[in-house]
Amino acid sequence: MNDYIGLVFIFIGVLFELFGCIGLLRLPDMYNRLQAATKCVTLGTCGIMFGIFLMQGFNEIGVKALVAVPLIFITSPTAAHALARGAHIAGVRLWQKSVCDRYEDDKKHMGKEKPAP
């Protein structure tokens, strides 16, 4: 029984990763791609790991898969946050149809805009 529930989790995880990577290919600029890919791939990999834990139980593979779930859930948004901040400071523009960019306005206002490396 647990095997089939685990397979369903793995299948849903792979499906979400597929959506995330379609987003990585289709969306127009770097921030939108980062957003779609981070959310979908994080939950997708967590689903795969949880499904593996349900299939394997408490043996060598299952416990390590369960340990990986909180690790992915903490590290992946942090990496996305660092990438977005670094890209904005390095001068990567938003999509030209974007509505507003309060961060750029505030950086100019404070007079601490750095030149692109």
């Binding site: 990763e17 995330g20 990577c21 981070t38 997708g44 990999t45 990438l83």
Partner: peptide, 9 residues
């Protein structure tokens, strides 16, 4: 970055 997480799965 995304490829790294995919390879883990």
């Amino acid at each position: 970055d995304i490829l790294g997480i995919l390879v883990v799965g």
